[in-house]
């Protein structure tokens, strides 16, 4: 968990089956996309996802609000 040096937060999105919406299902901390993928797949294994993707939290841009979950308390990347 947390900020082992050089880690950043990745948001995880998935859909369970075709035609489903891509939904935000969780967050992991990882030092690179390789580990973010593994961690996401193994931590959120409650369903057999049709599709799962991860994106770094700091890539999200707020559109209509100043305070959104992804931008509050931004994690410093070391």
């Amino acid at each position: 968990m947390g900020h082992l040096s050089g880690e950043r937060l990745y948001e995880i999105f998935a859909r369970q089956k075709r035609a489903d919406r891509l939904e935000h299902i969780g967050t992991v901390s990882a030092p690179n996309p390789e580990l973010a993928r593994v961690y996401a797949w193994k931590t959120y294994d409650e369903a057999t996802w049709f599709e799962m993707v991860v994106a770094p939290r700091d890539a999200f841009c707020a559109v209509n609000r100043d305070e959104v979950p992804f931008t509050l308390h931004p994690v410093e990347t070391v």
Binding site: M1, G2, H3, G26, T43, H73, V75
Partner: peptide, 23 residues
């Protein structure tokens, strides 16, 4: 462990230093 991770992540988003909390 996954559930613990989720809980600490929620704390982190509330501004808690979860590293200190855990380690």
């Amino acid at each position: 462990l996954g559930h613990a991770n989720i809980a600490y992540r929620l704390l982190q988003d509330l501004g808690v230093d979860t590293d200190a909390l855990l380690y």
